[in-house]
Design a protein around this nucleic acid. Structure first.
Lengths: 257, 257
DNA sequence: TTCGTGATGTGTATCGGGTACACATTCGCG
DNA sequence: CGCGAATGTGTACCCGATACACATCACGAA
């Protein structure tokens, strides 16, 4: 699966990267997390112009595009075995870094493939916030989480890509228990509800939410309660892998509108 | 929008096509039609090896990928102003014509970009069967319709692409009145039902189907009936553009499971 | 120690869409 | 002219979705 890949230094990357990567084609990952009752997305800040962007990368000539997306995710988060969902491919001919004020490093004398027009394939992933150690890439000085509703203007069409990822995530909410990936192993019902409310962008009825989620029969209530809050202590829950797999076989519906 | 593009002859296409098209990147269209109560898909047959494939094409260096898809659709069907839905991008590194017994024409002496590994972007379209004049491309001798369940083995991973298109179409059935594009202007309720049954791959109750479809209030019943059948003459219906637009504004659901 | 606050835990009545189903009608054909 | 087969139409029921109320309890303030 994971082949040995050449390691290029920065100058080599710009000058001869096109010998190793597919030209004109890139990957962009929208990596979602959930923390403090807020949906977050992982962004990088460029050294050069201080602007923010989605974590992305390129595809080795003999690499599956999904492999490339997995590689990018691993490099930025340290995480493996994460489900990635391809959601759209963006192919505006104006997707060209030079047309958006991005330049190659001054040390690079030759023309660079990096400045060409790029078609980019978008993937999103759901990760457990606390497990992530954000790591900038070679072009970035920072890699950090942003509240989904406090995302700054991003380079190129990355804001549009993020929007489309969120739409796709919403659609997937009906077919996949997103809490399984976005929450820590033990969580409370209010936390799970807040997650759904954030993704859907609207309020849900507490009692009906609990009824519906529990009816799926894919999680178990623990004896423990979450103490420390200023109010009645809520129960902790945990996804039950066995129950979950059994339910998925029967074709589960998570439709919460 | 539609820019002037150079016209390449066959030899030029193979030998210098990479100067005009994005390398390693292609478009494949899954074009659906409906005729004789059967869902159909448009396929091409290669001159060279007589094998069948999806109509596809390449992307000019300054062309939007969707523009390319529209261009391919127009070239094969003669149709314009058709909605195209991008559904998935296929990026297996083994998508390389040489690895699947496809060769370049013998007249072409140089190596050809055409034989490289390709990532392909899949679109599907719904067209009115009777309006289409299937037209083969330069590499094909035939362009014709196939029943969706009688599709032969196709080149590369085109069967997989077709499968995925069908899945995507099924999902879209809930958000879009497919009959509007796939049926002639006047149609009967049984015809519309057969269309849904074919796409969903299962039987629907006649009375409930009619109730649900009419409840959408996007079509009108005409006075005419369709004569000639061996039984009671069914009414003809027509989609009403005004009603349709009004309904879409309110967020319509075509959920037929 | 007690009490107030505010969030959580649980149950019930109602509404509406979805499903199942039956009988009358009518066109073409033999 | 009557038969067969498909269409036109209406009703009862089921279940999930929604709306909603009251009891419980952890913390913190008095």
């Amino acid at each position: 699966m994971a082949k040995k890949r050449p390691i290029l230094n920065e100058r080599e990357f710009f000058e001869i990267g096109h010998n190793y990567f597919l030209p004109h084609l890139s990957i962009d990952n929208v990596i979602f997390g959930f923390h403090n009752n807020e949906l977050k997305v992982l962004l990088l800040q460029w050294k050069e112009n201080k602007r923010w962007c989605l974590p992305g990368g390129f595809i080795y000539k003999d690499e599956h595009i999904e492999e490339a997306a997995i590689r990018v995710l691993r490099l930025r988060t340290g995480l493996d075995n994460i489900y990635l969902q391809q959601f759209y491919t963006f192919g505006n001919p104006l997707r060209e870094r030079g047309k958006h004020g991005i330049t190659k490093p001054k040390e690079v004398k030759t023309d660079s493939w990096f400045m060409d027009r790029f078609v980019t394939i978008g993937y999103w992933a759901l990760v457990e916030f606390s497990k992530v150690v954000p790591k900038p890439d070679e072009f970035s000085e920072t890699c950090s989480w942003f509240d989904i509703d406090k995302v700054p203007p991003l380079i190129l069409d990355h804001n549009e890509i993020l929007e489309k990822a969120l739409l796709s995530l919403r659609l997937n909410l009906n077919d996949y228990p997103v809490g399984k990936d976005l929450l820590p192993p033990k969580f409370t019902m209010p936390e799970l509800q807040r997650l759904y409310e954030t993704i859907l962008g609207k309020q849900l009825d507490r009692r009906n939410f609990q009824k519906k989620i529990l009816a799926l029969d894919i999680m178990e209530r623990l004896e423990e309660r979450k103490l420390g809050g200023a109010h009645k202590a809520p129960f902790l829950y945990r996804f039950d892998q066995k129950k979950y797999e059994r339910a998925m076989k029967q074709g589960l519906k998570f439709g919460l509108q």
